[in-house]
């Protein structure tokens, strides 16, 4: 009885982490589509990530309620819920960035196109490593530290790419209008924020992992 409930929650957590990974991949594809001018594909990605974010919210709530209702993992319940709630910020940000792009339609500058795509790739890789670390937290804590090192490394990479985009936008002469420079900076910061959110979760995960030790 208890094991079947456990199996249900396990499945829920696996699905949820899978959704986070999927959301990061949709985000990456969406950014690539937008900067390559494939706006139909971009619109599909916006719709997909919105649906996924909604589904994930429901799933997270269901996991939370079951954990409390069935009094499961009393010792680390707070940590697990903290992990799931904070990792939810990653999906939220990925959706928010795509939605903002779809509304504000920032101009695509050929000089910055590749940098934005690279920034998106790095942020996505960062989330992938976070998902690996989170899965390891549930099944094999020995694998968590290596994955977290990668998260920190990729977040740093994302910061450097963000700074490069801003420098190019503000010091280059291809953008003359300050509003447009600021718009470029705004989206570089927002995409990089996904890696920041992943790192924030990674820091929590470090503590949760120490606490999970015998």
């Amino acid at each position: 009885m208890l094991l079947s409930k456990a199996a249900k929650i396990e499945h829920g957590i696996d699905t949820y982490l899978g959704n986070v990974l999927k959301a990061s991949l949709i985000f990456d594809k969406g950014i690539r589509s937008y900067f390559e001018g494939d706006y139909d594909s971009f619109s599909r990605r916006v719709a997909e990530i919105s649906t996924l974010e909604h589904e994930s919210d429901n799933l997270r709530r269901e996991i939370k309620l079951t954990l409390y209702k069935e009094l499961l993992i009393p010792d680390s319940r707070g940590d697990v819920l903290g992990l799931l709630e904070n990792i939810d910020n990653v999906i939220d940000w990925a959706k928010k960035v795509l939605v903002h792009i779809s509304i504000e339609k920032p101009q695509v500058w050929p000089e910055l196109k590749q940098d934005f795509i690279s920034l998106s790739d790095v942020a996505t890789n960062c989330v992938e490593e976070l998902v690996k670390a989170s899965r390891a937290f549930f099944t094999n804590i020995a694998d968590v530290p290596d994955a977290l090192v990668k998260v920190h490394f990729l977040e740093h990479e994302a910061d450097e790419l963000e700074a490069r985009i801003m420098k190019k936008a503000f010091s280059g002469e291809f953008i003359t209008d300050l509003c447009q420079k600021t718009h470029v900076r705004y989206f570089a910061e927002r995409i990089s924020r996904i890696a920041d959110e992943a790192e924030a979760v990674a820091e929590r995960l470090e503590i949760y992992t120490i606490k999970r030790g015998l």
Partner: peptide
Amino acid sequence: LFFLVSFLLKHVKIHLIRLDSITRT
């Protein structure tokens, strides 16, 4: 027992939630 349980947990990868059910039993 501590070293035995640590060894088992290191080599038999059990999901945290399932581990909770097993620990409870």
